[in-house]
Design a protein around this nucleic acid. Structure first.
Lengths: 200, 200
DNA sequence: CGTTACATGTAACACTCGTTACATGTCAAC
DNA sequence: GTTGACATGTAACGAGTGTTACATGTAACG
């Protein structure tokens, strides 16, 4: 059975997903849930406690969704960046990621107020995606670049809502990486041949 | 001669660059400048008016710096992305760009409050950098990607302060684009030769 | 010297904020 | 039926917000 607090938490998650967390205020929040600010403080001790619990709840929800996606695609590897992108912009995950980006950015502006929420969210996407890179390409610069591409495109999506163009940009990036890899391999082959010729 | 308002504006710019604009409040601001909230309202009509004028002033300052950079490098083209990046992270420009990114992100969260400041800032970087792409590569996907790389890396720089790693990521991206271009050209050449052979 | 425009400070207003004191309701257990 | 834990509402407190009313200073001009 769900305790009153759990029910409240679910409602709070829904509210936060819709309204974001930068202007969160107890009274309007309580009104929207049909209750009073007093009750929220009663159950969560403080506004900060409320945020902590609600964000934690969101994070577990998101982790489960991510785990499910990984499991489903277990065998078929390839284009992990695209897989991850598609997962991130799916209707059921997008609002959560959007909120986490809001959090990340609020923390940059105001680490004192928001920093410690972020530390609980160990969800460092770039590291996650990085494991998908072939080891030869997993340099710090490449990992940073990969993370930045994801962040930059997701923020662009948040600003403009243009799923199509941002997704094409993801694919453009993948193509770029592939073509560059091919080019490198071709050079290696040629060098090898030349070296053989010289030796032979 | 500088009017009192212009002097104030300069001081306000300095204050904003240091404190960001998300928790801007008139009284602490006035205290920091050694004056009163009353005076700020007197000169700028309202908090919103103040922000508008100060952000405008910052924008013109930034545009001049950008123009100067372009002029200095007029002849020597090549790696415009790297040029732009180096300009953006230079000590004298970085705080301005940081603030504009703060603004951009506040606007995503709260368009009602911050959206119209952004509209005055027509500084759409991606369009600017895009003009540096060879026309053949100036597809919407590539332009979006380029902008996202810049945004993502700049935000990473804002979060971590790691100039070195983010700059290496910029160079990694440039290398990627170059290698991919070479690969495409190589394929074209081969196709052309094959086609000649067939014809000949 | 008086007037007039600009500049500035003090104190208040009306509001919102997170939080709390106090009262009351509900409902199961003894 | 009374006790006691949980749940909830109303109203207030103290602090902070942007803004304004009112008074005062400064300095140039007639």
């Amino acid at each position: 059975m769900q305790t009153r607090k759990e029910i409240l938490t679910d409602e709070l998650v829904a509210y936060l997903l819709e309204h974001g967390l930068s202007d969160l205020s107890l009274r309007p929040l309580a009104d929207a849930l049909g209750t009073s600010a007093r009750l929220l403080i009663y159950h969560f001790e403080s506004k900060e406690g409320l945020l902590t619990e609600v964000l934690d709840s969101m994070q577990t929800r998101l982790r489960m969704s991510f785990g499910g996606m990984i499991e489903r695609r277990a065998g078929q590897s390839g284009r992990p960046l695209k897989l991850f992108w598609d997962w991130a912009i799916a209707d059921e995950n997008y609002p959560y990621l959007k909120l986490l980006y809001e959090l990340q950015i609020l923390a940059v502006q105001n680490p004192a107020a928001y920093g410690h929420y972020l530390q609980r969210n160990t969800s460092n996407w770039s590291e996650l995606i990085a494991t998908a890179l072939p080891e030869a390409e997993r340099t710090p610069a490449m990992v940073t670049l990969l993370g930045a591409v994801f962040d930059g495109l997701f923020l662009e999506l948040m600003s403009t809502g243009d799923r199509k163009r941002t997704t094409q940009a993801v694919q453009q990036f993948i193509r770029l990486v592939d073509e560059a890899r091919d080019a490198r391999l071709a050079v290696q082959k040629k060098t090898a041949k030349a070296s053989n010729t010289r030796r032979g």
